[in-house]
Amino acid sequence: MDTAMLIEKSALVLLLFLISLGVAAYQTYFERKLAAWIQDRVGPDRAGPFGILQPIADGTKMFLKEDFIPAKADKWLFIIGPGISMFTALITSAVVPWGTNINLFGRDISLQVADFNIGILFVFGVVSIGVYGIMIGGWASNNKYSLYGAIRASSQMISYELAMGISAITIVMLSGSLSLNDIVKSQHGMNWNIFYQPVAFFIFFITSLAELNRAPFDLPECESELIGGYHTEYSSMKLGLYLFSEYTSMFVSSAIMAILFFGGYNFPGMDAFSGNTLAILSIAAFALKIFLFIFVIMWIRWTIPRFRFDQLMHLGWKVLIPVAIVNMLITGLVVAWNQGWM
């Protein structure tokens, strides 16, 4: 590893960090606007033209609020909780290939921080760690609502991780690699996995919603029963970090869904371009796909009511996992047939 590579990777990491934060901040704005539009309202429009400065105002407000730690809380775990959430939300973007190689200053720069040969497993690993932020924060608050939120989060995440993993295995079978880079490259042009694996995509999408704690699976923080769920006791920027991490992981998991099923940065007719033009167009295509996913996730939130907890468990264990396993078996048979193993 030479110095130039170190510099370019650090620059990429910094850029990704800033972009993730910026996107997360404007997701809050977009979410509020979308909610308003669906409910025939106007939404935030006072801070700046069309309320475009609203996230900045919200962020400043978060910083200026009193930072409160309950007297009987476990102080260290209370502080660590939001940190873990934010960390796991941000680190997933390291294995995402954001576009084709770009040529800058005579160097061929890969737009992927780390080309892990097991990138997809890394994503699952980080997702499964992400629940600790919620669990630790919820338990450390020493509040019954927070504890309920934490327990709901953990059982929900464990249940849905299984179906998520099984549905993603079909993609690994098709592309023959665990590396996200290879998975994207195998979907060149319009050869997207969604056309081969619609069922797997459907399951993956639902389980992603559950892993993100987004409606209709937002039981860990549901306001109507648990006040704020795991972040009931949190205030100031600690609460801000929890909310931020939710939006950041929404951004990143939209990227993961786009990579696994919608060809990542591939777009139809990409062979006509090359070099930096292709790189910029591929980034734009990827960004468009991510935006559409974010839009759909928010759209679902403002359409579908929340599940009851037993319905959630029923859906996870008795519907999604069997369907995912059958889908995996069929895919395995077809792959084996095509490879001539049968």
Binding site: L34, W37, I38, D40, W299, W302, T303, I304
Partner: peptide, 15 residues
């Protein structure tokens, strides 16, 4: 349901 909410998104606001 999602079609319904999408239709609402395109409506004129009365605010």
């Amino acid at each position: 349901g999602m079609v319904t909410t999408f239709k609402h998104m395109l409506r004129r606001r009365k605010t």
